[in-house]
């Protein structure tokens, strides 16, 4: 049987975490090819609906990323990201699909390494956990 290959959706903001992912590339940091980045202007644009939908579609993990608190390009829009994330966190916990499948990470444009490490860690962890039980492909 083919080895389980997790699918991970990462939402990145234009100014910090997307640029951080760029820097990981420029610095040739190697990480596994399991992550799909969706760019928005600000992490504040990440509607929790997008995260829920990703899981329902079959994401094994979802990464919500943005500028560090205090560094938001849009003054404090990422505060709202953080507040709304708490809802998602509780929701995922209640659903019982494994809280580690959802992660919020602040990544600045200079933290390419942090981005690469986040992907590596998540892929490793999810490989151990197995496919998300909410994925339509997983029989229960």
């Amino acid at each position: 049987m083919k080895e389980f290959d997790p699918k991970i959706v990462a939402f990145c903001c234009n100014w910090c975490s997307y640029a951080g992912a760029d820097l990981a590339g420029v610095s040739r940091m190697q990480y596994p090819p399991n992550v799909r980045i969706i760019k928005v202007m600000c992490s504040g644009r990440i509607d929790p609906l997008f995260v829920l939908m990703s899981f329902l579609e079959g994401a094994d993990a979802v990464l919500v990323t943005g500028c560090h608190i205090g560094d938001c390009h849009y003054i404090d829009a990422n505060h709202k990201t953080k507040n709304r994330f708490e809802f998602l966190k509780e929701m995922i916990a209640e659903l019982g699909i494994g809280e580690e499948r959802l992660r919020l990470e602040w990544i600045s444009a200079t933290e390419g390494e942090k981005f690469a490490d986040m992907v590596k860690e998540t892929v490793e962890k999810i490989k151990k956990m197995g496919p998300s039980p909410l994925s339509p492909k997983v029989m229960q």
């Binding site: 609906l49 829920l52 329902l56 929701m91 339509p136």
Partner: peptide, 26 residues
């Protein structure tokens, strides 16, 4: 309403209810 955004028929939980659960959590 955002809960009316169409999901896919293969979802294990309808998107409609997922969004309602989220929006009603508080």
């Amino acid at each position: 309403a955002k809960c009316l955004i169409e999901g896919d028929s293969n979802y294990k939980i309808p998107l409609f209810l997922m969004v309602r659960l989220l929006h009603l959590m508080d």
